[in-house]
Amino acid sequence: EADPRLIESLSQMLSMGFSDEGGWLTRLLQTKNYDIGAALDTIQY
């Protein structure tokens, strides 16, 4: 079963217009401990 923190973070990022095609966003959020800010910083640079 998916981590509730992942579901919450992923749904927030999907609502911002990101896609999780191929699961890349799920993996990114997992490596950033479900921190949306850290994930966005990684995507920006």
Rank of each mutant, 00 (worst) to 15 (best):
E1W: 11
E1M: 13
E1V: 13
E1R: 12
E1S: 13
E1L: 12
A2I: 13
A2W: 12
D3N: 11
D3F: 06
D3H: 09
P4T: 12
L6Q: 05
L6V: 05
L6E: 05
L6T: 03
I7Q: 14
I7G: 09
I7P: 07
E8S: 13
S9I: 07
S9Y: 06
S9W: 06
L10C: 04
L10P: 00
S11H: 12
S11N: 14
S11M: 12
Q12L: 14
M13K: 00
M13P: 00
L14F: 11
L14T: 09
L14Y: 08
M16I: 06
M16A: 05
M16V: 04
G17E: 02
F18R: 00
S19F: 09
S19T: 14
S19L: 11
D20Q: 03
D20E: 03
E21A: 10
E21F: 09
E21Q: 10
E21M: 08
E21W: 07
E21L: 09
G22L: 07
G22S: 09
G22W: 06
G23E: 05
G23V: 01
G23I: 01
G23K: 06
G23R: 04
G23S: 05
W24L: 05
W24G: 03
W24Q: 06
L25T: 00
L25V: 06
L25F: 01
L25W: 00
T26Y: 03
T26I: 06
T26H: 04
T26M: 04
R27I: 10
R27C: 12
R27D: 08
L28D: 01
L29K: 00
L29A: 00
Q30G: 07
Q30K: 13
T31K: 13
T31L: 13
T31I: 15
T31Y: 12
K32G: 05
K32P: 02
K32E: 09
N33G: 10
N33P: 02
N33R: 07
N33F: 09
N33V: 07
Y34M: 06
Y34K: 03
D35K: 03
D35G: 02
I36A: 04
G37T: 14
G37Y: 14
G37P: 11
G37L: 14
A38E: 10
A38R: 07
A39R: 00
A39F: 04
A39T: 13
L40W: 07
L40K: 04
L40M: 09
L40F: 06
L40Q: 04
D41H: 13
D41W: 09
D41N: 12
T42I: 11
T42H: 15
I43K: 00
I43L: 12
I43D: 03
I43H: 03
Q44W: 15
Q44E: 13
Y45I: 15
